[in-house]
């Protein structure tokens, strides 16, 4: 008995789907486990594992806010990420525009320099940056968490992404802008930026997540509890004696991860495309 092409295809599709489902387990399980454990007591987390808590401890989500200034830390992460995103958008699109559209001496060299910055991990420059930030009197403030991502390799990546996008905008549109008497700045603002919404969206998404998840910089530059950002707060979720609070740590982690995950699920196509763009262009 031979199978028709349709049957073979059906069988291979089913096998593929089953295989993918198996592979998907380690991608999905941590999230399910995290959320479910956030509702358990510390004892239950280490007891017989089950995805449904025996007793739903909703108070975990209240206690999270009692042991640390968690609302404040949440807000810190949020406003820092928004600031970093806005600054990166402005600065990288300005530079990206000049690199794509304007001719000036040193442009080639500048490109080369910026390109090299993409290769350098921030661990290489963290020590001198520590002294720089100290010299600027900005220790234990949020300024380094804003300045370093905006001007570091992430900002450079955003610049290249913007440049690549501006290159694809038809020159004629700009010429029309010039005819209307727009300055360079005007063309950038009125013509180039509105045409590059997809690139701007991509930069925003990637930058926001980059800042939101930043860890090394807060670890080195922030020391007081109420100036902590979320990753720092999560990594160190202890009571006032330094005793780890496992169940609250997981509840707090859920609080930090789930909103992002929901936004991701809603806008997954846009978000995935943004990253695809960054990888190809950057």
């Amino acid at each position: 008995m031979t199978l028709t092409t349709r049957q073979t295809r059906l069988i291979s599709r089913t096998c593929l789907t089953l295989a993918l489902l198996v592979v998907a387990v380690p991608f999905v399980f941590p999230f399910l486990w995290m959320v479910s454990s956030g509702f358990k007591s510390a004892t239950e987390i280490f007891g017989q594992p089950s995805l449904i808590p025996r007793v739903w401890r909703w108070q975990n989500y209240i206690e999270v806010f009692e042991y640390q200034p968690f609302a404040r830390q949440y807000f810190n992460s949020l406003y820092i990420a928004v600031t970093v995103t806005v600054l990166t958008l402005v600065i990288s699109s300005l530079a990206g525009y000049a690199l794509a559209r304007m001719r000036f001496a040193g442009a080639g060299l500048l490109m080369l320099f910026l390109l090299s910055a993409l290769m350098v991990p921030e661990e290489v420059t963290i020590i001198p940056n520590f002294f720089l930030i100290r010299w600027m009197g900005l220790m234990d403030t949020h300024a380094p968490l804003i300045l370093l991502p905006v001007f570091g390799s992430h900002g450079v990546m955003a610049t290249f992404l913007m440049r690549q996008y501006f290159l694809a905008i038809p020159k004629e549109l700009e010429e029309a802008g010039k005819m209307d008497g727009l300055s360079r700045f005007g063309i950038w603002w009125r013509v180039a930026l509105p045409m590059s919404r997809p690139a701007l969206a991509a930069v925003s998404i990637i930058t926001f997540l980059f800042s939101w998840n930043l860890f090394l910089e807060p670890l080195v530059f922030i020391s007081s509890l109420e100036r902590f950002t979320l990753p720092l707060a999560l990594s160190n979720f202890t009571d006032s004696y330094g005793l780890p609070l496992w169940h609250l740590q997981l509840a707090a982690t859920s609080l930090a991860v789930v909103p992002i995950l929901i936004v991701y699920l809603i806008a997954q196509r846009q978000i995935i495309e943004s990253f695809a763009l960054s990888g190809v262009k950057g």
Partner: peptide, 27 residues
């Protein structure tokens, strides 16, 4: 055009010198 272009890239350049190239030399 060159002057305008350098104005456009100046924030990036200043940041790059201050937070990247400077530290790299310092290290």
């Amino acid at each position: 055009e060159a002057i305008e272009a350098w104005l456009f890239v100046s924030p990036t350049v200043v940041g790059f010198l201050l937070f990247f190239l400077g530290p790299l030399v310092a290290v």
